[in-house]
Nucleic acid binder design. Sequence first.
DNA 1: TTTTCCTTGTGAACGCGTGCACAAGTTCCG
DNA 2: CGGAACTTGTGCACGCGTTCACAAGGAAAA
Lengths: 232, 232
Amino acid sequence: MSSIGRIPEASVARLPLYLRGLDAFPVGVTATVSSEELATLAGVNAAKVRKDLSYLGTYGTRGVGYDADFLRFEISRALGVANTWPIVVCGMGNLGRALANHSGFSERGFPVVAAIDTDPDKVGVEIDGIPVYAPSALASVVTEHEIAVGIIATPPEAAQGAADRLVDAGVVSIMSFAPIVLTVPNGVDLRAVDLATELQILGFHLHRDRLANGAHATAGREQNLSVGQGPV
Amino acid sequence: MSSIGRIPEASVARLPLYLRGLDAFPVGVTATVSSEELATLAGVNAAKVRKDLSYLGTYGTRGVGYDADFLRFEISRALGVANTWPIVVCGMGNLGRALANHSGFSERGFPVVAAIDTDPDKVGVEIDGIPVYAPSALASVVTEHEIAVGIIATPPEAAQGAADRLVDAGVVSIMSFAPIVLTVPNGVDLRAVDLATELQILGFHLHRDRLANGAHATAGREQNLSVGQGPV
DNA sequence: TTTTCCTTGTGAACGCGTGCACAAGTTCCG
DNA sequence: CGGAACTTGTGCACGCGTTCACAAGGAAAA
């Protein structure tokens, strides 16, 4: 087994992008990718690709490139994509329903196997094929499906409660869409995505450019940003 | 007018969090916040709060703290929150509909005023009060509502096309949920959020912890992460 | 007025991430 | 077999962001 040393967080955050880029190459077929190509596919630069991959091991061939299929396998292994992580969605409002249906999740090894909602009208039925349970059933649902990942898509007021229940039930990774700061015990991995905040960042640049130029936004900023998030 | 110098991107990304934290204080009422309190409310540390705010100007009082109401005003001004930025959502699938309904957007000054979809059954009707137009109508819709911000929630195959049309129509800020790399001209601000990628990052830590410990995840990682994204 | 207490604002050090530039290694052609 | 062309892997330098630690300043009490 290849004992991988410490991989910088910034690199970890890019590994899924490389994996996504490798979708351009068919599975099971031998093909060669250069760091340059992969960089384009992932939206980063070539030096970063090479350095990131070097943290995983020496998987390329100098003068040639990387074998696409093998590289996919190795990145998948590093990310633990071989495993399937069933997830539970808390809050079946607009966003929750959309997330529960999001095909990208199951395609990437994160099938939504259950949902939680407080609305008695929703509890007990299946929404888009996903069974909805009451909050009280969370612990048993988590145990039964061996769920390690939870998504919080509740209203802000209910988010901390949902997080607490998830943690109590044994969930150790949480992705939250609630626009508040959540507190979770040590050892629980929390990722917060606040969509309105993201827009406000866009708004800042917009505002600045409007002030700088007359009304037209010609003087530019950067042109491409990728997903990511830094630890606090 | 306070001419603000260059504000680091990392600081800009936190300003909305501070603003969100200040929601805890009523509008129009004089109250004092210390950097420590605000740090807790925003989920960061106090030194960062002070440094970030110092980029905006000298708004605090030594020995006392910041006036919550005034601070909110100043951060709002820096972010351009005074303005309202109408947005258009491209792709009224599950995610698009959820985003179009997301109350957090309009609350924060980003009302969804129009949607675009290729499905003839959707075009011409209103979905949740939002008029849906055909892609060909995009330019006139953007002009009419003076739209500067677009959201891409289309399937991946249609995303680049949607981006191109948005740019042609004059949109200069784009938030994309499509799991592909988009190319936009210089001067256009693009923010990409790939939800599956976010989950895979969680999955990586999960995987690592499972390998390290037996099966229980007690040995911990960090406990709190906030939204953010770095320029490429 | 002077002293004490408190919190901001910031200079400076540290650490991480990025990108350059090149040595090391591979393939292919003559 | 020698050399040209190419691409990886990485040492190193640079810059940004974070954090510490403290001086500067203000309020309140003595």
